[in-house]
Nucleic acid binder design. Structure first.
Lengths: 224, 224
DNA sequence: TAGATTGTTAATCGATTAACAATC
DNA sequence: TAGATTGTTAATCGATTAACAATC
């Protein structure tokens, strides 16, 4: 791939915007829009046009001066950057509520992220089919990974087991972990862990709701 | 509450750290640690001690010079700031995979976020019990909200229905929405919407995994 | 008291925005 | 060509880090 990059590592705020660009371009493509300017896109996404041009040009110019960006081409390019224009194979560790919901959520499959197997220690869960996949015993994990290389493991165990399982995954060569366990984990060398702390976002919502009320009730600083 | 605040609106990066502080303090409290310095906390959370002191002092000094911070007091204070030291009543709109998983996830209930009802249009789902709650018809939503004021609505409908339902929620006076629908929605006036785009974080993980490989294979810039 | 560690201000760093030449 | 809009550099803004006086 010949994408120009101006950073050693893309800044985090910018990497968070990439999926948002992609989603918006998907919507535009579905709506049949073929071209878009940075200004239009900015209005729809609550960003500035300047920021959009800055972001996109840092990957190397997907637009045409005077004409704007081609929706399909830009979507394809951003997809390449994120490496999502191919199938990803996932396994899920822990077949509880969260693990099952991830395995059954059709949206991921549509986006090319396919859950191929789940693993659990509970004999009640082993052998059960969840969506397109099946629950295996944790004891089968090592053999499974030898026969079926996976791209990403979804971590959805109880908190008490999470670090141990993460270490095992790292030792077995899994390089990407999508972690739903609300614990502070140490990533094994060579493994990237992306944390989804659902309760955190719920707290953040509570905080903003509360803050809003305080600000409305009492303009200016609240001094101790 | 007499929390000192130095900002009109707490900066977003800082508001993201508040739940992380809270979670870490919970772990420390559970482990029986009574006091902690900004330096220790920084090491455990991969932050700088300076940032921690800066963050905490902006809410108004919970520490004691020479001694550090009291774990329980700090946890309580941050809980007050986020307004999570009380029960929150939730309803879930859409009793599909995600809606059901949220309703059944014990972690939220333990943190004081209680799902009291779900709503759906599918007659097959109506009347079914999910965790501690029950699925009602969407037609019952308005009456339900009149009788049972809720703090937060979880939006987990199909994409096609999301904006319509969000507008209804706004009109019925719901001030906080925790949105799991992967669409770009317009928040009704007076309603705070917190978006959880699960697919986005999966794409972000894919991006970082891909970026890492590129960087390792080829130091320096890749020019077009 | 001496040592430790906070709270706070100033310095630095990095991300966003503004401006405009390049060019379709 | 004239108008539009990108790509890119410079200016600004905001967040993080450093430094150290205050004080437990």
């Amino acid at each position: 791939m010949s994408v120009r990059r101006k950073y050693d590592r893309i800044p985090d705020p910018m990497s968070r915007r990439l999926p948002a660009y992609y989603r918006m371009l998907q919507e535009l493509e579905a709506a049949g829009q073929t071209d878009i300017s940075s200004l239009e896109l900015a209005r729809m996404m609550n960003l500035t046009d300047s920021q959009i041009r800055h972001d996109l040009s840092s990957f190397g110019g997907f637009g045409r001066r005077g004409l704007g960006y081609n929706v399909s081409l830009l979507k394809k390019s951003i997809g390449d950057i994120m490496d999502i224009n191919r199938k990803h194979r996932l396994i899920v560790i822990g077949a509880g509520n969260i693990g099952r919901a991830v395995a059954m959520y059709a949206g991921f499959r549509e986006a090319g992220f396919e859950v191929e197997a789940l693993f659990d220690v509970d004999p009640q869960r082993i052998g059960v089919a969840i969506g397109q996949a099946q629950v295996y015993s944790m004891e089968e994990l090592e053999q499974y990974l030898k026969n079926n290389p996976v791209d990403i493991a979804v971590l959805a165990t109880p908190v008490s087991q999470a670090q141990k399982v993460l270490d095992i995954l790292g030792a077995l060569g899994v390089t990407g972990v999508w972690n739903f366990v609300p614990a502070t984990l140490n990533a094994p060398e060579g493994t990237i862990v992306f944390n989804v702390h659902l309760a955190d976002s719920l707290m953040a919502l509570s905080f903003r709701m509360h803050e809003k009320v305080v600000v409305e009730k009492n303009e200016g600083w609240t001094e101790a």
